[in-house]
Simulated assay, not measured.
Amino acid sequence: MTLLRLLMLIACLATALPAHAHDGIVVVVVRHAEKDDDDKVDPSLAGSGEVRAQALAETLAGARLDLAIATQYRRTRQTAEPAASAAGIPVTLRPVDAANAATHAGDLARELRALPPGSTALVVGHSNTVPGIVEALSGKPAMPMPETEYDRYTVVLLDADGAARVITSRY
């Protein structure tokens, strides 16, 4: 999907948000952008990843972000920072490690479902956490994410009655 089509989708969602402003929560879930090879444990974003993070921020500019969540790793924080900065909010860290890997997605989904109605959140994860987060939020199976995939985004619309709608595309 081209960036223009993604922008049009987000614009449509942003236009539709007032109808859901009193009863729904919007969660955008993405994997971190392309990583550099500067550190084997905690790499930063590559130049192409920085471009992708900025494109994400531009795409979400009309979405009125209330919360941006990333893991403790530089690549997720650096992916979330441009969008969070544009929204005037900090990036909130939700670490994931061996101790909480089994419960991370469910814990995060509970936290997101407890946001006030009308909230919009960005969640930046990893190829091995994004599908689980989407599934925990929506209750629907999510496609696995290969290590080489950086361009998928998923919008989960959480209705007040607990129902979830999922829109998955590429940017």
Results as ranks from 00 to 15, higher is better:
A99G: 10
K40Q: 12
L122E: 01
A163W: 06
K140Y: 13
P116T: 06
G24F: 01
D38I: 12
E34R: 15
E50S: 08
A109Q: 04
A46D: 15
G49L: 03
A114W: 01
A163T: 07
H20Y: 15
D159T: 04
M145S: 05
E111C: 11
G47L: 13
A83E: 04
D107W: 10
P146L: 05
P18I: 04
A114H: 06
A53W: 07
V124L: 11
D66M: 09
A99S: 15
G24T: 02
P146Q: 08
E50K: 14
D151T: 11
A87G: 07
Q72P: 09
S85T: 10
V156I: 13
V96F: 14
A163G: 10
M143T: 14
Y171D: 06
S119N: 15
D38E: 11
A160G: 06
Y73V: 00
A99Q: 15
A164R: 02
T59D: 03
Y153S: 00
V51N: 14
A98D: 06
R113E: 08
A70S: 05
G88K: 04
T120P: 03
G47P: 11
I25V: 13
A53M: 06
V28C: 10
A55V: 02
A109V: 03
L108M: 06
A87Y: 04
R110V: 12
E81G: 10
G47V: 10
I89W: 14
A83T: 07
A101W: 12
V96C: 10
N100A: 09
V27T: 11
P116E: 11
I25P: 04
A98F: 01
K35T: 00
V123N: 03
A99M: 12
E34A: 13
A163E: 10
I69G: 04
D39A: 11
L93H: 08
L137Q: 10
T15N: 15
A136L: 10
L108F: 02
E81R: 09
T154Q: 02
N100T: 08
L17C: 04
R94C: 06
P43K: 14
A121T: 15
G162L: 11
G24M: 05
R77H: 12
E135M: 13
G118S: 03
D107H: 07
R170Q: 05
A109K: 08
A57R: 02
